[in-house]
Computed example of a mutant assay.
Amino acid sequence: MTQTTRCSTPQPIRDGQGGADPGPRNTLMDLQNPDVLVPPATDAGTMPSLKYPFGQAHMRLDAGGWAREVTQRELPIATTLAGVNMRLEPGGIRELHWHPNNDEWQYYISGQGRMGVFANSGHNRTYDFQPGDVGYVPFAMGHYIENTGDTPLKMLELFRAPRFEDVSLAQWMAPTPRELVQHHLKVGDNVMNSLRREKQPIFRP
């Protein structure tokens, strides 16, 4: 077991082995990972890390919320799984997009949300989600997620892929010849002028 001092600072000592670490120390991280500071006697230390906290992942901040991802970049052993932790403020929207590399699984942690999913030939569905619900988006289907409640919406997205990839509809349309977009989608200048080349995954109207 990890030994602690009177001030609850864990030390790398087990059954008379090891010794105190005078620092500098990241005590909070040591407290959260006691099996790393003082590995069990059965741990040979020969496996790569199987753990990476979302709290250490890069946080993307947008007007309507935030998102952070853990992929093979952060957890090298995760060659078949990537995850995104996302929060949408009330009225916040995850813009219309699709994923070119795999399906998407979702777990709704808190709040209320609505997702629209678009397939080919004009087929589409709209779903409402509550905490504890699981959502699924098939490969390459366009979809958006909206916070329809008055409290933050928090969710987890999982992909069976080593990295997270997405294509923004607005970002994809912005560099496309203006006349081509207007001819096929029958949209006016106001829509075209609102398209942006910069990526903004989360926004609030």
Rank of each mutant, 00 (worst) to 15 (best):
P152L: 01
R68A: 01
D15P: 13
P205V: 01
G132I: 00
Y136E: 06
R6K: 15
M47W: 11
D21G: 10
F54K: 02
E95I: 04
A44F: 11
Y144H: 15
R204Q: 09
Q130R: 13
N147A: 00
L50C: 14
L96G: 00
N101M: 14
M59Y: 07
F139Q: 14
T148V: 11
T151G: 13
D15Y: 12
A41R: 15
P22I: 00
P152K: 07
I77H: 10
M29E: 15
H99N: 14
L156W: 03
V117A: 02
R73A: 05
G64V: 04
N85D: 14
N26L: 10
G116P: 03
I93V: 15
E69H: 12
Q106K: 10
T5C: 12
P40R: 12
F129H: 08
A140V: 06
P34K: 10
Q72M: 13
G142N: 11
N102T: 14
E179Y: 08
T4Q: 15
R73N: 13
H58M: 13
Y52Q: 08
D133W: 06
E198Y: 09
G92T: 01
Q3F: 13
R160N: 15
D35F: 05
V38M: 05
G55L: 09
Q11I: 01
N120L: 09
D166S: 15
Y107C: 03
A170C: 11
M155Y: 05
E198V: 02
G111M: 03
R60D: 11
N120F: 04
L156N: 02
A119K: 11
T80W: 03
L180I: 10
G113V: 03
F164V: 13
V167D: 07
A67C: 12
P39F: 08
L28V: 12
P39L: 05
R178L: 04
H99M: 08
M86C: 11
G65L: 04
G91N: 04
G111P: 08
F118I: 04
A63E: 12
A170P: 13
G116K: 14
P90I: 03
K154P: 10
G92S: 01
N26G: 11
I109R: 05
F54D: 00
N124E: 13
R114T: 04
D128Q: 14
F129V: 07
V70G: 02
F118A: 10
D43A: 09
Q200T: 09
E179C: 04
F129E: 02
P34V: 00
W172R: 11
Y52L: 03
S8C: 15
H183N: 15
E104C: 06
T4D: 13
G83M: 10
E179D: 12
N85Y: 07
P175S: 02
L81R: 00
R73L: 10
M192G: 05
A161S: 15
T80I: 01
G149T: 02
G16H: 09
R6T: 14
Q32S: 12
